[in-house]
Amino acid sequence: MRHGWRLRHGRVSIPGQVYSVTLVTRGRWPGLADLSVARRVIGSLREMDETGHSETLAFCLMPDHLHWLFRLRHRDGLSGVVGQFKGRSARRIPLLRWQRGFHDHAARDDVDLRRLARYIVSNPVRAGLVCRVGDYPYWDAVWL
């Protein structure tokens, strides 16, 4: 059984639902740590919000992966929105390739949202990239 199928097994897409999604670069390519690349990936996240696909609540762009907490706003479903984001960001960054599939978790309530947002933005501290969340440049949150 392929790994991608296991990631999709049981996945439900509900417009208005908040999801925490983790996307990983192919081969764990660490290029997301580059300022120019990071700005273009973040621009793609903002574009997803502006076009009505998502409402980003928090994100953290790590060197080789992305944690994204967002409210699903589009009828294309979770996989469709994530696929749109992957395509947009890859077109902006010729070297960027995302692994197939993604990990997702549906938030249950406001307490869960806060926990997920805090977990996402504190990722660079847990990874030893910085000592304080505020020292890391590639994150944002409207829900803490």
Rank of each mutant, 00 (worst) to 15 (best):
G83H: 14
E55S: 11
R2W: 12
P137M: 07
D49G: 07
G83V: 11
V111D: 09
W139P: 06
G16A: 08
Y138L: 06
F70Y: 10
D49E: 15
V21T: 00
R92G: 03
L66V: 02
A107L: 06
V81L: 14
Y138Q: 06
W29L: 04
V121I: 01
C60W: 01
A117R: 01
L23M: 12
D140A: 15
T56F: 11
G43I: 03
R114S: 09
D140Q: 10
W5P: 01
A141G: 07
V82R: 10
G101D: 05
V81H: 14
S13Y: 03
P15K: 02
R115S: 07
Q17K: 04
R118A: 01
E50H: 11
L66F: 02
S79E: 08
G134P: 02
P124E: 09
M1Y: 06
V133Q: 05
D135R: 04
V81F: 13
F85K: 09
Y138A: 05
E50W: 13
A141V: 09
R6T: 07
G27A: 00
Y119M: 00
A33C: 08
R115G: 06
V82S: 13
W5V: 14
G83I: 09
V82Y: 09
M48H: 11
L78V: 09
D64L: 00
V41E: 05
Y138G: 04
R6C: 04
E50F: 12
G27C: 00
P137V: 08
G52K: 11
L116M: 08
R71E: 10
G43H: 03
M1A: 10
R2T: 12
L78P: 09
R28M: 05
D109L: 06
F59H: 07
A141Q: 07
A38I: 13
G83E: 14
T25I: 06
D64Q: 03
R6S: 09
